[in-house]
């Protein structure tokens, strides 16, 4: 008898819970759209390279505006344009520039282009194990190692260390190649700049994140990979890249900022901002923080190369 009552009580409670659940559905959205000024939800979908940077900026933002809630998704730059297009988010960080195709799709959907903001400078570095004695590598060799197409003009594929290094130093055997997965902007950029838009070899290991690439290269003597400058750790060594002119350029803050290092790039944040309208408070506070001195200090702490404040301020259109 007693347990019977218990069972019934439970049922009423679950029923009540369900009822309340469904009633609260429409209300949640209402609560979200009307709030005090610097509050609300700040969502972003996009680059994995910039995930750490976005998180740190977000942390700094929430210490100042505790009412802002953050929702960051970082699965790769390629996820930003569809998300902006579908309206899943208004902020799309990308580690490469939008392609014309992506931009046109956006314009077609909304009638205006997305706002493009350059927020930092980064570089791609070719990495090997920390004890690898290889002094430098030429752009042509990188293509011959990573691609199956050799669109940059290599004569023959390089698959083994014996082919790359004539003398008897360093690792032997196959060059274990490590790369990002296809959604990543780093992947796209590397393909465009280093493989001359060619195809990767099919046996390149594809990792879920940049730090996984660095970890994998740091664990294996015969490995080679590429990653963002900010992910460098002492477990791996960045190779200087030699161009046609023959001089090898080491990636460093100076060479990346002045563009001497061939694989340097801007990092972007794309914003869905209808012309003439103002951004919601949370987005606005976020962007103001990004282009401030504090934001650029955080950029350095995250391992990227900051931009001069004047360059940043010139882009302010909101």
């Amino acid at each position: 008898m007693n347990s019977n009552g218990f069972a019934l009580r439970i049922k009423y409670r679950t029923a009540l819970g369900l009822l309340w659940l469904f009633c609260s559905l429409p209300l949640t959205g209402w609560a979200q759209t009307s709030g005090p000024s610097a509050s609300g939800t700040l969502g972003s979908v996009g680059s994995d390279t910039m995930a750490g940077l976005m998180l740190r900026w977000g942390e700094a933002l929430t210490t100042r505006h505790p009412d802002i809630s953050l929702q960051f998704q970082a699965s790769g730059s390629a996820s930003a344009p569809p998300a902006l297009l579908a309206g899943t988010t208004r902020i799309g960080p990308m580690s490469r520039r939008m392609t014309d195709e992506e931009r046109n799709a956006f314009v077609e959907r909304y009638g205006y282009p997305p706002l493009e903001l350059r927020v930092a400078r980064d570089a791609l570095v070719v990495i090997v194990h920390r004890h690898n004695p290889l002094p430098a590598i030429s752009l042509k060799d990188v293509d011959a190692i990573f691609s199956s197409t050799r669109a940059c003009g290599g004569d023959h594929p390089i698959a083994r260390w014996e082919t790359l290094v004539e003398d008897d130093t360093g690792p032997r055997g196959r060059i274990a190649l490590h790369s990002r997965n296809m959604a990543s902007g780093t992947y796209g950029l590397f393909r465009q700049r280093m493989l001359c838009d060619g195809e990767f070899r099919p046996d390149v290991s594809k990792h879920m994140g940049a730090s996984a690439v660095v970890a994998a290269v740091g664990e294996s003597y015969a490995a080679m990979g590429y990653s963002g400058y900010n992910h460098l750790t002492p477990s791996v060594r960045a190779l200087p890249l030699s161009t046609q002119q023959g001089n090898a350029v080491m990636p460093s803050e100076t060479t990346i900022q002045n563009g001497d290092y061939p694989l340097s790039r801007y990092l972007y944040v794309y914003i869905n901002l209808p012309p003439g309208e103002t951004l919601p408070a949370a987005e606005q506070a976020f962007l103001n923080m990004v282009i401030s001195a504090e934001g650029q200090q955080i950029t350095r702490a995250a391992g990227f190369v900051p931009l001069p404040l004047s360059t940043l301020e010139a882009q302010r259109t909101w």
Partner: peptide
């Protein structure tokens, strides 16, 4: 209760910090 919000999950957090983070070590 904000049903539309995204949330953090232990298992995904594990995956994310181990493979997406800045510094695996």
């Amino acid at each position: 209760l904000h049903l539309e919000r995204k949330f953090m999950h232990l298992g995904y957090h594990l995956f994310d910090t181990a493979f997406h983070g800045e510094d695996v070590q």
